[in-house]
Write a protein that binds this DNA or RNA. Structure first.
Length: 748
DNA sequence: TGCGTTGACCCTGGA
DNA sequence: GGTCAACGCA
């Protein structure tokens, strides 16, 4: 963090703030993390007991970093007693504590946490039970509604009477069944980890009072992205003392789609009367040019409090923009940029200080391919988190059952994973026993087995029961020991090896990593225990696992980049329909959220920004271009021309006919400063030989087709008779065998 | 009855 | 290219 050695006056005012509510409006790079940490340190110096301070961060990673910084300042013992965590993590902690004697919302302390996949499975069962086949096809949409309801603290009972349309009625009914089933399984979903805390506080005001008294100081980071339920938690905990210290930036609010409520920040002063407001507008992170560009872009938003970041740093390099022909060329240009910054002779940067940001995970593929091709180490953040991987979830399902035998999602998963001949028929029998009143699926299976109802599956079921019983009996042992027991008794490793040889290596690697993580947790966690381990596994995201210091390029979504900073930032895929995303184009408020996301992306950069777009982009598979082509994102045009160095092709209606490897119409304007290192061949040979493009020589050529007419070749695949071109005929994109095309185009 | 194969649909973002 | 439900084989 490139913070000043000393705090500036606004920062110091925030840190030294005596008591009462305080809203810190902190622009990007204005040192808000530092202020928050300093503030906590200052409170401890003022003799506030560490376990009377509660700080909410946005990610587990931010929580860890804050704790480490505070540890350096006040020592390990005090730092460990602080309550620092995400809303979800802290929610688990509170719910676990409070469920100890009597349970919370019908769940005991061994509740499990349902992730998206578990939720979907459960909802599918619910919808099937309701006889709703059509809805069952898209449980995601209904889960979204349920999630919205919980974020807004709407219970099923409250949702039912206000449901107007038939669809809404079905959704609220599904919500009620879903809720009942979760409770039966002693499970909470992600939204419950927040909402149930509020409902707990309402049902038992003495509990809320206890925590409000205990936490003399409540601090919240990234306040602009809190939802209504989170606001209620903060409000409840602030009762009586009002020492609520929140830090946020309305321009960086990028999670409204999942319920973040910007009125929390806009109306903070009304919610906490007498609140002081401090603005941090000096940016210490980015160069003048980057900041000016970001400011210019965000000023196009109407819905904002309005502030203008400034800095004392030099203007720095211009931002750069490259329009590539397609995503593979885009990837080449991105990697080339990284190469120049971090690898070429004389380059002063590090790979770890380069990050590629994009709008959707799907964009990572082309970048990965290119990075691998150039043998540049990278790390992909996001997509599937480690703990969501199939092999990891398969194994954890057994541990979940050891802790909580009512966890039906885990049971159905474990039942026939690895395959042991217990399929749909066995499942149906067990479901029958469950409906007849068996307390949980394990006991239902035991009953079915004893009644001889499992004929062919009997021996497999017996073995599975024995394993589950043993796991339950040994649930107090370290997670890695139990995982080894599962591996050994189920033959899981042999099964994945047989399943898919190609993926087996990676899966085994993941299992090894899981064993290591489980052992580390058992040994090091302040509150060990299987239930806590499983909670951590549910709440850790991929972004939390990013290690500091490793020398590699980071690939991540703009959402995931929140709170991070790098010397060199590349924002890829800047096309209308992608960034801003197509779904936002019709809705002004959503377009503004896209713009804020772009603003977040830009302000991650300290030194240099490269923006890229592709004129055409594959969608789905390698087959066919389904994507909207070619129109550069409006956000690029919102950057003042004098700040942006464009390497854009000179657009022409006709493609090049000159036989050059590179179609003139898409050719990047050559750098004026003479050849780059890689062009002189002084660096890796691969750079010199591959040139700016590896695409087929036919790409860019004009061709003619009997029925489709004139078109331009976008890509080629196959050879000889199977050589096929992807051709754009006007607005339509088709894949055509080369031999159906004419007009001097078949170069290869 | 379980399991492998086929074809539909698909990809915003994430705790 | 990947996932998942429906389908038909052993």
């Amino acid at each position: 963090m490139s913070s000043p050695v000393l705090l500036n006056s606004a920062q110091s005012a925030a840190v030294e703030h005596e008591r009462g509510p305080l809203l810190v409006l902190a622009g990007a790079g204005s040192g808000k993390t530092r202020v928050l940490t300093e503030r906590v340190g200052r409170l401890l110096e003022r003799r506030v007991a560490p376990d009377h301070v509660l700080a909410f961060t946005f990610t587990n990673r931010a929580a860890r970093e804050m704790r480490e910084r505070i540890e350096r300042r006040v020592g390990q013992e005090a730092a460990r007693r602080l309550w620092v965590g995400t809303f979800h993590g802290t929610g688990v902690r509170l719910l676990r504590r409070e469920s100890r004697p009597h349970g919370v919302a019908g769940r005991g302390p061994d509740f499990v946490i349902y992730d998206r996949e578990d939720q979907e499975g459960l909802l599918r069962e619910v919808l099937k039970g309701m006889g709703l086949n059509e809805e069952a096809a898209r449980p995601g949409e209904i889960l979204g509604k349920i999630s919205d309801a919980k974020s807004a603290l709407v219970t099923p009972e409250e949702a039912m009477p206000v449901a107007m349309t038939p669809f809404q009625r079905r959704v609220s009914e599904a919500y009620a069944f879903y809720e009942a089933e979760l409770r039966k399984r002693s499970a909470f979903d992600f939204d419950d980890l927040i909402a149930q805390v509020v409902w707990l506080f309402r049902a038992r005001p003495e509990v809320a009072e206890y925590y409000a008294r205990r936490f003399e100081h409540v601090l919240v980071d990234e306040y602009q992205d809190t939802n209504h339920a989170q606001f209620r938690i903060v409000e409840a905990l602030g009762q009586g003392h009002d020492n609520v210290f929140v830090v946020g930036d309305d321009d960086q609010s990028i999670y409204r789609w999942r319920g973040a409520d910007i009125s929390n920040i806009l109306e903070f002063e009304r919610a906490f009367p007498g609140a002081a407001v401090i603005r941090l507008e000096q940016n210490y992170r980015s160069t003048g040019n980057i900041l000016a560009a970001a400011n210019a872009v965000i000023e196009n938003n109407r819905e904002r409090k309005g502030k203008r970041l400034w800095c004392e740093r030099e203007a720095g390099a211009s931002l750069r923009f490259v329009l590539a022909a397609d995503e593979s060329e885009e990837a080449q240009r991105v990697v080339q940029f990284i190469h120049e910054r971090a690898l070429a002779p004389g380059a002063t940067g590090k790979l770890s200080q380069c990050a590629v940001l994009y709008r959707t995970h799907a964009q990572s593929r082309a970048l990965e391919t290119e990075l691998r091709h150039r043998q540049i180490p990278y790390e992909l953040v996001g997509g599937i988190s480690f703990y969501q991987r199939r092999e990891v979830k398969d194994l954890l399902a057994y541990l979940r059952l050891a802790v909580n035998p009512t966890d039906a999602a885990a049971f159905w998963r474990a039942l026939n994973t690895p395959k042991r001949g217990l399929g749909d028929a066995v499942r149906a029998r067990i479901e029958g026993r469950l409906q007849a009143g068996a307390p949980n699926p394990i006991e239902a299976m035991r009953a079915a087995l004893q009644e001889g109802a499992l004929s062919r599956g009997a021996s497999a079921a017996t073995a599975l029961l024995a394993l589950l019983d043993e796991l339950h009996a040994r649930a107090a042992e370290p997670a890695d020991v139990l995982l080894r027991l599962v591996l050994e008794r189920t033959g899981y490793l042999d099964w994945i090896a047989a399943e898919d040889e190609r993926a087996a290596m990676e899966r085994v690697g993941n299992i090894e990593e899981l064993l290591e993580a489980a052992a580390a947790f058992a040994a090091l966690a302040p509150e060990p225990g299987l239930a806590n381990y499983l909670a951590e596994a549910s709440l850790l995201t991929d972004a939390d696992r990013v290690e500091e210091g490793a020398d590699r390029v980071l690939l991540l979504t703009a959402h995931n980049a929140k709170g991070l900073e790098f010397d060199h930032v590349i924002v890829a895929g800047l096309e209308e329909g992608l960034f801003p995303h197509a779904s936002s184009l019709e809705v002004p408020s959503e377009l503004e959220e896209e713009r804020r996301l772009f603003y977040v992306a830009l302000t991650r950069a300290r030194q240099q920004v490269l923006l890229t777009a592709a004129a055409f982009r594959h969608r789905y598979s390698a087959g066919g271009y389904g994507g909207a082509g070619g129109q550069v994102s409006r956000f690029v045009d919102e950057i003042p021309a004098e700040l942006l160095e464009r390497e854009e092709p000179i657009r022409s209606s006709r493609a090049s006919e000159n036989g050059d490897e590179y179609p003139e119409s898409w050719a990047p304007r050559r750098e004026r400063r003479g050849p780059r290192d890689w062009e002189r061949g002084t660096v890796k040979d691969s750079w010199a030989s591959a040139g700016p493009t590896t695409r087929s020589a036919a790409v860019g050529r004009e061709v003619y087709h009997e029925s489709f007419g004139r078109g331009i070749v976008m890509a080629a695949e196959g050879q000889g008779d199977t050589l096929r071109y992807t051709v754009r005929f006007g607005v339509r994109i088709k894949k055509v065998l080369a031999r159906f095309l004419t007009e001097g185009s078949h170069v290869d």
